[in-house]
């Protein structure tokens, strides 16, 4: 009975044509796509503002310079305009953007001799052998073999906020990401910085699920190592 009572307001809203929060979110993306298909300049400018920073970050992992990465972002948006009429919403708009960018960036990266497809480059297929952490971090002999030599300390729950408040720490994280091998950088950028799902990342980068996990683990391990001295003991 209580279900019927509580379901009344949403039924009423439905009858009045008021969308639920979930519907509004879906409408937003569908609305964005429709506006772009209509050639709405204000919506294009807003979408560009919203997504170009993410696109630029990903582009920089494929090509050798920021200037080329900026060109790739421009080419991506032109690709969006060319393809928006055929966009069917099978993936999210953002994932679609990343896919267009990746295709364009690979072409540019190959031309600029930076990007090589998986399996062709010794430096890009990194991550399949050896531990991600140095042996020296663990006890190597005796009954404690394999245990931490210097046990990890607890980080405070507000670590992300504190870490990013420190310009020095933020720069250290950015430097660590930039120093990663290309494919690790692409995976960690899409997965952790942009929040794209594992399945979509495999699809965008054309890599296997296992490879994606190995690359992500190695990349996260390196960034964690860089973050540790800044946040250890609550210092930033």
């Amino acid at each position: 009975m209580s279900f019927l009572v509580w379901s009344w307001p949403s039924n009423l809203l439905f009858a009045l044509g008021v969308p639920t929060l979930q519907e509004t979110m879906q409408l937003d993306e569908a609305g964005l796509v429709r506006a772009l298909q209509r050639g709405d300049e204000r919506v294009f400018a807003a979408a560009m503002d919203l997504y170009s920073g993410s696109l630029l970050r990903l582009a920089m992992s494929f090509v050798p310079s920021r200037a080329v990465a900026e060109e790739v972002v421009q080419e991506t948006w032109m690709g969006v305009l060319e393809g928006i009429g055929r966009f069917e919403g099978r993936s999210s708009f953002k994932t679609w953007l990343f896919r267009i960018l990746t295709n364009r960036a690979k072409t540019r990266g190959t031309r600029e001799r930076r990007y090589e497809p998986f399996g062709l480059s010794g430096t890009d297929s990194e991550g399949d052998d050896g531990p991600s952490l140095e042996d020296s971090l663990f006890v190597t002999e005796g009954s404690g073999k394999g245990h931490w030599a210097d046990p990890p300390q607890g980080w405070e729950p507000d670590t992300p906020e504190r870490a990013l408040l420190s310009k020095e720490c933020r720069m250290a994280i950015e430097t660590a990401i930039n120093a990663l091998p290309d494919t690790q950088r692409q995976v960690i950028t899409l997965r952790d910085v942009e929040g794209v799902s594992a399945e979509e990342v495999c699809n965008i980068l054309s890599i296997s699920e296992t490879n994606q996990r190995v690359l992500l683990h190695r990349a996260r391990t390196k960034v964690r190592g860089v973050l540790d001295p800044y946040v250890r003991g609550g210092n930033t």
């Binding site: 900026e70 906020e161 960690i188 952790d192 910085v193 996260r220």
Partner: peptide, 14 residues
Amino acid sequence: YTVATLHQLPSEAV
């Protein structure tokens, strides 16, 4: 926390 920190990194300035 590393993942959460990465997710809060500010976007690149275009």
